[in-house]
Design a protein around this nucleic acid. Structure first.
Lengths: 179, 179, 179, 179
DNA sequence: TATGAATGAGTTTTCATTCAT
DNA sequence: GATGAATGAAAACTCATTCAT
């Protein structure tokens, strides 16, 4: 995947040649499929965000207590993130790369994703399972803790990806859960 | 400060000319003080990390209950981070930019910083104020949640920096604190 | 040829722009074919040295008395040198320009070339046509006298290239030839 | 001496900083004594050439057979050259560095130096000690063979500087001497 | 005299992008 | 559809030179 390459060294740090070779294409071919470098990144980001949204929506629709849902959402996010690693790291500070129009769509998707967590939290509060909290702040604590995983997780630790994901998820729920 | 400039568009996205003009210098002058672009970033990172370490060490030495110390450490970190913003954003994935030797020092400082949180957590566990937890994971949840702030905090929200910092700090302590 | 340009003002004195325009290319194109300026010089030197070696080997294999062979070798060298002029002038003191690895190959080729003269001299000594001499010193007198030509030869003298070459060759043989 | 530094990497390859540090001065001070880089080189070249001229004139005035004089001139040149090494290597192709006026003086001195060899040769021819030869060519064979020494002489060989110089001198005289 | 900080003009190098084949 | 040669605009970097102290 192109994103994987892009995000290792950042947008400007990755050359089209590197991307092309990672995609097993030649530089010329990449330009057949993508308008330009920016477009390549844009398409990749959209895919990533849409898949993430899909992931969390699937979780939301499952029949289970809200704390279980949030728990699962966190686990799924971390697992997906460690798989697609690179793409997520790119997500930081995209302001200077994209056009306004592109940015709008990306921010929209990011917001949508954030909102999913918000509604899980609110659902829990209403069900009296969660404490009443500042939703925006708690949502961002959750997002931050999850996304930070790429900075420290390494395959050769004691715990595997799923275990890490579940641990994090458990600890984060302590912020919310009553009793 | 140079870092502030660097991190807005990322290392590769920022030109030496931009950095120079931000520092009210000419490109030539910047090269008089720094060997090259990499060196500029390196020196800045070192300063940032050393200042952070100093910050947390100051907190550690204060006479107060351990939960208060951790609370304060988080607040101080977030406040410093929102002030120096940019530098921190650069801290992600520095592997591709630095030389092995430089990386070693940076990783050392990062580790030292992480260890400070570890010892605060352990101190709390031993004082029976905190639950017994997987220190590495909880430390990283805290770091992730704190560092993520740069991604979403904006001056024009309802809460100011200190309030945000204290909120986050409170929520994070819920993961650890008994009772 | 790139070398011709390079050697007029020396390696550092010639800009890539000048080289490119001499090659009827753009600066960018030059970088498509050569890794960097150093590489450009290196490739050129190798070509030059390999062609010189080829030249002398051809002479060595011809059926003729050894004094004639040496005579011819000198003539061929000077003629080639006056044609490729520039490249040879660059050959002096390449130590500071090339990498160790590159230098090794260049020195190897230079040595090989020198050895060809040595064996012609020895052949003559054994055939009792030449005086017994310090081969290393005589070889270097020959090389020095030949390569110096670029420093003084000018097209508008009385003698043309071939005549000069033959004169030099005759005089040099006096050092060696018996009777 | 400044020249020594200059000639190791060539005019353009040597920075004023390197020259300054070799002269145990700071960059600023060098500019107190020399107008600019070019001037520095020019002064050095002049000194070198004037000293060489002085050397050969001293030899010319000595009372000894002409073949001995030429022999001695060659020895003195090589010895001086191996001592001041660097300066001589700079002497090649100075056209692009100097101003017309400077060039004129340098070429004048070079010519004067060449002429000294010419007159030694002619003196020998008239004394019937030397064969009648093309003076220009033989002079240049001598100069070439002598100046090439810097390209191959290394302190750790079997022969020391004087022995090398005498050997070369002997061999070169074979080109000229009758019987 | 001596210094070292500052500069800008020039040089090397990189790389997204184009385009003929 | 695919390629790789070619390009130019922009970026990193160098260094002779100046100048305030």
């Amino acid at each position: 995947m192109a994103v994987s390459v892009l995000s290792k060294k950042g947008y400007h740090g990755t050359t089209m040649e590197e991307i092309a070779s990672k995609l097993l294409m030649t530089k010329g071919s990449v330009y057949y499929y993508f308008k330009d470098k920016q477009d390549l990144l844009y398409q990749s980001q959209i895919m990533l965000l849409e898949k993430s949204l899909e992931n969390i929506k699937t979780v939301q629709q499952q029949e289970m207590p809200v704390n279980e849902k949030l728990r699962k959402a966190v686990v799924v996010h971390i697992e997906y993130l460690l798989r697609e690693r690179s793409g997520f790291e790119m997500m930081m500070k995209p302001e200077h790369i994209f056009s306004l129009e592109q940015l709008e769509k990306i921010i929209q998707l990011r917001d949508d994703y954030g909102k999913c967590y918000d509604s899980l939290i609110l659902e829990g509060v209403e069900a009296d399972v969660f404490h009443s909290v500042d939703v925006k702040i708690v949502r961002n604590i959750i997002l931050g803790a999850m996304n930070w995983v790429t900075q420290w997780y390494s395959d050769d630790g004691k715990k595997d990806k799923r275990e890490i994901a579940e641990s994090i998820s458990d600890y984060l729920l302590r912020i919310l859960i009553k009793e």
